[in-house]
Design a protein around this nucleic acid. Structure first.
Lengths: 192, 192
DNA sequence: GCCGTATTGGATCGGTCGCGCAAAAACTCG
DNA sequence: CGAGTTTTTGCGCGACCGATCCAATACGGC
């Protein structure tokens, strides 16, 4: 009962996500969010709470979409190195898209908010942990099949791959040179 | 001539740098800057210009201090791997300091501002280019002396090291686990 | 000792911020 | 059709934002 909602909750949260993604938390006003969703200010706060709650919901929406894609790439069948390469290449494609994207929302959140907002920090950690576990699992599988070196255990190797992965995305923001970024990926894979 | 300044320009800019470093650009108000420098709002804008100019000055101050330390570590005498390790270890020490620091100001700037402010983007690129060249130069020296593999040329290898370096600093923000971070460093060095 | 000059502290400007209130609107159920 | 419930709409509140203005101040040069 009650007046029916005019908006789709998932679509609204997706719009909110993209706005926060593009501008960051502080630079986004509640009026920006109202405009990008097509909703009124009161409808937004009535449905989702205040600005900070909206941000947390946007992070969770990102988790359900983009983070899920990353882990899915790592679980596909086929050679493990191809999966890691797919993860890296997909990130390069996103970071070098036209018009230029704003990188990884979670990385942005970790820089802007994670050291001042414990709930954001926890949400950020959740993403990183999920990706880390997917990488570790894939590498362990590769070690079993002999594709991946056993010089280090899968956990250590996963940290190594993750640092290259996130470093790659930092570099992509600063110097969008696809050739150089691809070289980084191949250099990493050659040493696994 | 005129009334003498009560503040030291370098000290003021250092205070401004630390405030922006800790809170980011958008979350820092001009009144925050006035408080952290001990100056009045008028004195700040009279001496340095508006908030954005202050931010750019803070980035340049960071370049003269922190970035300079990084390149200096890479130019020291001794084994090249020890220099790279020193660079990485110093970053870990900073990122895991108590009270927890806010990582690398330039990385923060690249996430928050570099895609909307061309001047900030240029300043950010300047830092990255400087560090990259210092790493490349050190690795080339190591290749000459036989310390470093010649599987790839020094430029490609430098990108590889840089991605691990910045990825390390991303991970340090999210999971301040010194053992894991140190393992990443050693895993990288072992493959050079 | 007075004048020109640069800096200082304090007040204040118009604008925007996040958030909330009150009334109209649109549905379900009795 | 009317009562109850939820969302929408429009407006406005107090606070804070970045930036500027202005008078008071403190120096060097004459």
């Amino acid at each position: 009962m009650g007046r029916p909602r005019k908006f789709d909750e998932t679509r609204a949260l997706t719009a909110v996500m993209h706005t926060f993604w593009q501008r960051g938390y502080e630079a986004t006003s509640t009026r920006d969010l109202a405009e990008s969703t097509g909703m009124g200010l009161s409808s937004l706060s009535n449905a989702f709470g205040d600005k900070r709650q909206l941000y947390l919901r946007a992070l969770r929406r990102y988790y359900e979409t983009n983070t899920a894609v990353q882990t899915e790439l790592l679980r596909r069948p086929g050679p493990v190195k191809d999966r890691v390469r797919a993860l890296m290449t997909q990130a390069i494609d996103i970071d070098l898209a036209n018009p230029p994207s704003s990188g990884c929302l979670i990385m942005n959140a970790s820089m802007e908010m994670a050291n001042t907002d414990p709930e954001v920090a926890q949400e950020v950690r959740r993403h990183f942990t999920t990706v880390e576990e997917a990488v570790r699992s894939a590498l362990a599988e590769g070690q079993d099949s002999g594709e991946i070196t056993r010089d280090q255990d899968a956990g250590t190797l996963a940290h190594h791959v993750l640092s290259a992965y996130y470093g790659l995305r930092v570099l992509a923001r600063v110097r969008p040179d696809r050739t150089a970024l691809t070289n980084v990926v191949e250099t990493l894979l050659a040493k696994l």
